[in-house]
Write a protein that binds this DNA or RNA. Structure first.
Length: 328
DNA sequence: CGTCTTTGACCTGCGC
DNA sequence: GCGCAGGTCAAAGACG
């Protein structure tokens, strides 16, 4: 992921600022007692020398703490800067998002419907699958998806489900069309109990053997929003845009990932444009997309930091050093 | 004429 | 076992 490469979290700090940080309390106690006993026998010059070394060590730890704080401050500033840019773009594009605005539902968001107990187990399976596999792609498992109930357990785990929110111009039932670059054949329509708006069922018709299905239904809360639920993985290449396909996987989540990837690229490009030409370039993404990207970036930052052993060690050393200095 | 959409019927799983 | 609800099938119609 390109964001990982942008964030160099290798702080290059001394992860062992104090020798006794790695020692157990009993060992520390032993060190202190032995030092005390030996110190009685030593002359004052030796004691002063050891004290000086300790003070030097403490100063070094404090300097590292300061360095850590500065780095964290810079990171926070960068994050705030990015967030402000997102807010700007949300404001500037707020009026242009009545058509084609896409929002990806969070993987743990159950805000649509969750009234069916019989799907709870399957949902949990899919949720855990998504949680294990997702790398911030905002895929979601739906709590009201039933088509997977016919699948064997292995296939249930494999079946990837993503949900995309698309804002349309009109709230008429005739516009249950989500343009995602694939060709779909409608094979059914049903009025569900939870939502008076009919739910349309589509199959991918680009490849005869493609198992991907799509369900499209207007949101019960906001009928200008169409909820498209994708199930399965495409076993063929993207139909319309080969370029976009190259940057995404050939799964049912391709629209989702594509949206996130494009947003990431656009935001990166926007940041560069803003620096070079005082942000004369505009991003044509919706507030929902920006919000998703914001979540995505935060997750990436957190993920990158937590995966970096250097950062973990430095943070642990800094906290330990803070405790030791404050205990004196 | 081929393709796509519509829509009622049927299938399946789950709760009681 | 029955009823309910969601999902799927397939015949019929629409359309280019």
């Amino acid at each position: 992921m390109e964001f990982t490469s942008l964030l160099n979290t290798s702080l290059n700090l001394n992860t062992k600022p104090l020798r006794f940080l790695d020692e157990s309390p009993a060992q520390k106690q032993e060190v202190v007692e032995s030092s005390f006993t030996i110190g009685l026998e030593r002359n004052s010059a030796t004691l002063k020398e050891e004290r000086g070394a300790l003070v030097e060590e403490i100063n070094r730890v404090n300097a590292e703490n300061k360095k850590l704080t500065e780095i964290l401050t810079v990171m926070c500033e960068n994050y705030n800067e990015l967030r402000n840019q997102l807010a700007e773009h949300q404001t500037s594009n707020n009026n242009n998002n009545n058509h084609g605005g896409v929002l990806l539902e969070d993987s743990n968001n159950n805000n649509i419907t969750a009234s069916k107990k019989r799907k709870a187990d399957q949902t949990n399976i899919i949720n855990s699958n998504n949680n294990n596999n997702n790398v911030g792609n905002s895929e979601s498992s739906s709590s009201d998806e039933d088509s997977s109930k016919k699948l064997p357990r292995e296939e249930i785990v494999k079946a990837k489900i993503s949900r995309v929110f698309v804002r349309t111009e009109s709230s008429s039932d005739s516009s249950l069309i989500v343009k995602d670059g694939y060709q779909w054949r409608k094979y059914g329509q049903k009025v569900t109990r939870d939502n008076p708006c009919p739910r349309a069922y589509f199959k991918c018709s680009f490849a005869p053997t493609c198992p991907v299905k799509k369900k499209v239904q207007r949101s019960i809360e906001d009928q200008s929003i169409v909820v498209a639920t994708y199930e399965g993985e495409h076993n063929h290449s993207h139909q319309l845009s080969k370029n976009e396909t190259n940057s995404t996987s050939l799964s049912s989540t391709a629209p989702s990932i594509s949206v996130v990837d494009n947003l990431a690229k656009k935001t990166k490009q926007s940041k560069e444009d803003a620096r070079s030409s005082n942000s004369k370039g505009k991003i044509d993404s919706s507030p929902q997309q920006q919000q998703q990207l914001q979540h995505y970036l935060v997750e990436q930052m957190a993920s990158t930091l937590t995966k970096d052993p250097n950062f973990k060690a430095a943070l642990a050393a800094a906290i330990s050093g803070k405790f030791l200095s404050s205990a004196k």
